[in-house]
């Protein structure tokens, strides 16, 4: 069996405050994401989905458990050590870009940090903008000068710039209106396939998750309560919680 891109074992994150009992946002979560596979993480608000994303991207330190990327233990690694393998698309596109810097700066930053010259990065940014369906002119615009959908396209360009193996989409379409959502999902789907990336797709829209993901993990109060092939989980849910989630969208 090939090594999965991401392996998470008994991952735990307790947010503690001195003198008080901690709150377990993620409580013993284990799962794998294989190469080119798209795994959906679903559940209601506060179930710990985004915390898992931040832990995997090494933006947060876990309280317990292990995280492996391509077989390497990165549980204690710095975000800079994993950023060539893992990238993330955030929920709110405008807030994910520095308001004082242009979209081009933001998209090209990982390339500049990886040692590319300004000219090389500029050329790569123009190509990336075209790959996500934006005119290269957008590179000189500021986040507040473009629409939410355009900004999210730029955010996707930024996430794929360095050629990651795993793309984490943290509610990447929730802040967009319905028509734009469909465009962004189609774009993500096309790019993930074309670039053979694995994807950890976090969302609370079950219909979207079913269409987009190969497998689904259902989270509740920091634990995975159900896991299985996407169609199977949606069509014949095993737990009451998943049934309730399904009922709530119908």
């Amino acid at each position: 069996m090939t090594t999965p891109i991401l392996r998470v074992q008994e991952l735990k994150k307790i947010f503690s405050r001195s003198g008080r009992e901690g709150f377990a946002a993620v409580d013993g979560v284990s799962f794998d994401v294989g190469g080119g596979e798209c795994v959906g993480l679903i559940g209601e608000s506060g179930s710990g989905k985004s915390t898992v994303a931040n832990l995997v991207a090494r933006l947060l330190d876990p309280t317990g458990g292990r995280i492996y990327l391509e077989g390497n233990d990165v549980t204690a690694a710095d975000v800079r050590a994993v950023c060539r393998t893992v990238q993330m698309v955030f929920q709110s596109p405008r807030e994910s870009f520095d308001p004082r810097r242009t979209l081009g700066d933001g998209v090209g930053e990982s390339l500049r940090n990886a040692g590319q010259s300004a000219a090389e990065a500029r050329a790569a940014v123009a190509e990336l903008f075209e790959a996500v369906g934006l005119s290269p002119d957008f590179a000189s615009r500021y986040p507040h000068e473009v629409s939410g959908g355009q900004c999210q396209r730029a955010a996707i360009a930024r996430a794929i710039a360095i050629g990651p193996k795993l793309l984490i989409c943290d509610e990447a379409t929730s802040a967009l209106d319905v028509t734009v959502q469909a465009d962004i999902v189609a774009l993500l789907s096309r790019l993930i396939r074309a670039r053979a990336m694995a994807c950890l797709f976090i969302c609370h829209d079950l219909a979207l998750a079913q269409g987009f993901c190969d497998r689904l993990l259902v989270m509740r109060e920091g634990k995975i309560v159900e896991a299985g092939a996407a169609d199977e989980v949606i069509q014949s849910p095993k737990t009451e919680y998943t049934k309730m989630l399904l009922d709530s969208i119908l």
């Binding site: 975000v79 993330m88 929920q91 308001p99 933001g106 930053e109 940090n113 955010a155």
Partner: peptide
């Protein structure tokens, strides 16, 4: 705690670069 700082960290920025280019101007 903002998303753009998380994105900058994921872009591989060093602590000094984060401070000078992303935190200080904001």
């Amino acid at each position: 705690e903002t998303d753009y700082l998380k994105a900058a960290r994921l872009a591989g920025c060093s602590a000094a670069r984060l401070a000078v280019r992303h935190i200080l101007p904001n």
